[in-house]
């Protein structure tokens, strides 16, 4: 399987390279502006008109990023949380009093924000009120539920569900091990975490039923829901893994769909915002567009020297951005 997909349809020639001077650790779209998150200090914004702009956001390493349509929020080892919009204007959201690393950030409905430093999770409500909650160990991931003002916090030994505006005690979901990434299904019924082991864990929130999703070769770092919410696409194997969430039990008792096999692991996945297509970034630098229905593939980037670290689609699905560990980046115009 060491082919480089030389014989499949290609959109490689539609790529506009973007100049980045550091490894790319994440990429998001703010409207039709691509925001590349560099491993240190800055974002690089590429506007639709081709204008590139480097925006300094942190005085050190950028540890975490999350975005909605209007702003990208980053956390740094300078203890700061910074929001940046498509024009490159930055807003300081918070600065940790002890200058601890901001390990995680998340954005929620209606402009809600969350971040974490060590064992403490912080939220800022859409109205601007700030609250914090200590969990038993360092926060591994943060994810807002799709509705209301409710935050899932992954940590060692499970996850905590927190309604910051309610008086009720946060709910604890237990599962032994270290939970390092988290996502909530579009319908809000399932919380899925990626663990230190090469496995996913899931909870059906209504009855806290556990789900184990196994068979991975490496730690899962990238999780993305398909446009219709029926599939969870993941990295962590030498093929694209798609867990079915059509049924009321989610993937319980079901096997995942396996597409686009290669001889190297999938490192990052990004689902098209309207169609059943997944952009898949591999450890060898290859990017493929894979159709969920039939596994058809389109070549988006030829293999390079280093892993693809991030892929993202614009909201209209016409632009695909990618970035790599060896400081290569581009935007492909599919419109």
């Amino acid at each position: 399987m060491s082919d480089t997909r030389g014989d499949i349809p290609s959109v490689v020639e539609r790529t506009r390279p973007v100049t980045v001077d550091a490894p790319v650790v994440d990429v998001r779209f703010l409207g039709d502006t691509a925001a590349f998150v560099l491993g240190e200090e800055a974002l690089v914004l590429l506007a639709r008109n081709g204008e590139e702009r480097r925006v300094a956001v942190h005085a050190g390493v950028v540890l975490s990023a999350a975005a909605d349509d209007e702003r990208i929020v980053t956390g740094g080892d300078d203890g700061k949380v910074v929001a940046t919009d498509a024009s490159g204007a930055t807003t300081a959201i918070a600065a940790d009093a002890k200058r601890r690393w901001i390990d995680q950030v998340a954005v929620g409905p209606n402009g809600a924000l969350a971040w974490s430093a060590g064992k403490t999770a912080f939220v800022r409500s859409p109205k601007g009120g700030e609250q914090s909650l200590d969990v038993p160990s360092t926060v591994g991931a943060l994810a807002f539920l799709p509705k209301g003002f409710r935050l899932a916090i992954a940590h060692y030994g499970g996850a905590t569900l927190w309604f910051p505006s309610a008086q009720a005690e946060p709910e604890r979901l237990e599962w032994k091990g270290s939970h390092l990434a988290a996502t909530v299904s579009r319908d809000g019924r399932f919380l899925i975490t990626a663990m230190q082991e090469p496995t996913l864990h899931g909870w059906r929130l209504i009855d806290r039923k556990d789900m184990r999703m196994q068979g991975y070769t490496t730690r899962v770092r990238s999780l993305a829901w398909s446009a219709d919410g029926k599939w969870l696409a993941t990295s962590g194997s030498t093929q694209l893994i798609l867990w079915p969430f059509h049924a009321k039990d989610g993937p319980m008792g079901k096997t995942p769909q396996l597409l686009a096999p290669m001889d190297v692991p999938v490192d990052t996945v990004g689902c098209h915002p309207t169609q059943g297509v997944v952009a898949v970034g591999y450890a060898n630098g290859l990017v493929l567009l894979v159709r969920i229905d039939d596994g058809a593939e389109i070549l988006a980037r030829k293999p390079g020297e280093a892993p693809v670290t991030a892929v993202a689609w614009s909201a209209d699905g016409k632009l695909l951005a990618f970035g790599t560990e060896d400081a290569k980046a581009g935007v492909i115009d599919l419109g």
Binding site: T138, Y156, W175, K176, G177, S178, Q196, E197, T199
Partner: peptide
Amino acid sequence: FEMNNGCICCTVRGDLVR
């Protein structure tokens, strides 16, 4: 923390990973 892989002595420094 212990790895959840059935191996009781397999412990990892989670903070170091991070």
